[in-house]
Design a protein around this nucleic acid. Structure first.
Lengths: 189, 189
DNA sequence: TGTACATCAGTGAACGCGCGTTCACTGATGTAC
DNA sequence: TGTACATCAGTGAACGCGCGTTCACTGATGTAC
């Protein structure tokens, strides 16, 4: 049956939220259109009233999840949370770049474009609070730290040995903190 | 028709090689058993004489590709090659951790175990040539640098803007080199 | 060494399931009078 | 404001394709004598 305009907007939001959670946990290939619609409280037939295809949903989901990202944050504090065992276990609500970046390489241009935009925005955001004398130095610190965070959490998640996982996170945290410390001292001089 | 014992061993190797290339380019989900057998010069029906299932092939392929990894290398030189545009474009023969790590998180325990073993071995290998006063410091530098390499190449590959890709690679290279430089100076003192 | 035969790797057709997508239908919404 | 009706979001059955897996068959290998 037909539903109200507000309900339509609300349903679209629910679909994107459900997709964003499910994709992060199971990957694009591990989630069916029916799974997403069920998680959103609807039946699968209605899906094509909202999106042209599953690929279309994927692109919109990426755009949606990156649009929700905070625009202001502190690099050092962000790194601590990012490289925590808590985030490592929390695929569902965790970083979309770490969870879906590698898979997005093989997806549609629209999906890659959405992730590229998110990437660019995130780097700019991190650059603001990164340590360094110049904007260029801060951007380098932001990119280097961010790359290390993404790589570390992916490896920590794939590891079936929790001791190794924890080590990867802790050592990368310490590595980033060490560099940040060096740069801050250089700025202070 | 039956083939010789040597041919069987050779075919198994060809299947693993083909799988290793195809999986890295298209991911586990993007490659069919028939694709792999065709690339190995065989028909799909023969597959189950070699492996119990596609999942079994995936686990053996990961073990195979990590077994081929060199056991001796120089971290600084390795990082330069790893973070080159050439490696970025070369999915087929590139790093299996960057290409398949994220997808392996969602795969069988056997696949994760194979990748964990590869991870551990690679970190130990990098630690030997990493800069630092103590073994612990060298291991931290190896883990931090390695995490940054993996994260950077994944993001460079997903980016649809080659300028951003190149920047991610170059800045991460510079970031690792900067840290290496700092640590070497500290050791020299 | 040569021959007969059992073994078994490889072939390709077939099976069956799952998933993306379509479609006829339902009934609530919201508009026109 | 109330009523009649057109619209259209949602439903769930159905379709069709692709892929993992199976299987009867073929013919080369390699062993037993």
């Amino acid at each position: 049956m037909k539903v109200s305009r507000e309900q339509v907007a609300e349903n679209r939001r629910k679909i994107l939220e459900a997709a964003s959670r499910l994709f992060r946990v199971q990957g694009f290939g591990g989630v069916t259109v029916a799974d997403v619609m069920k998680a959103a409280g609807l039946t699968h037939g209605g899906f094509y009233g909202y999106f042209k295809s599953k690929d279309d949903l994927i692109a919109h989901t990426l755009a949606h999840v990156f649009a929700e990202a905070p625009s202001e944050l502190d690099l050092a504090r962000f790194a601590d949370g990012y490289l925590s065992p808590r985030h490592c276990k929390n695929l569902q609500g965790g970083c979309p770049t770490a969870a879906l970046g590698a898979e997005t390489i093989r997806h549609t241009p629209a999906a890659r474009a959405a992730m590229t935009a998110g990437l660019r925005q995130h780097i700019e955001c991190l650059s603001r609070s990164a340590p360094g004398k110049s904007a260029a130095e801060r951007r380098q610190a932001a990119i280097g730290s961010w790359a290390a965070m993404v790589g570390a959490i992916i490896m920590a998640r794939v590891s079936d040995d929790s001791q190794l996982s924890d080590e990867l996170l802790a050592q990368t945290r310490a590595w980033i903190a060490g560099d940040t410390h060096q740069r801050k001292r250089a700025v202070a001089r």
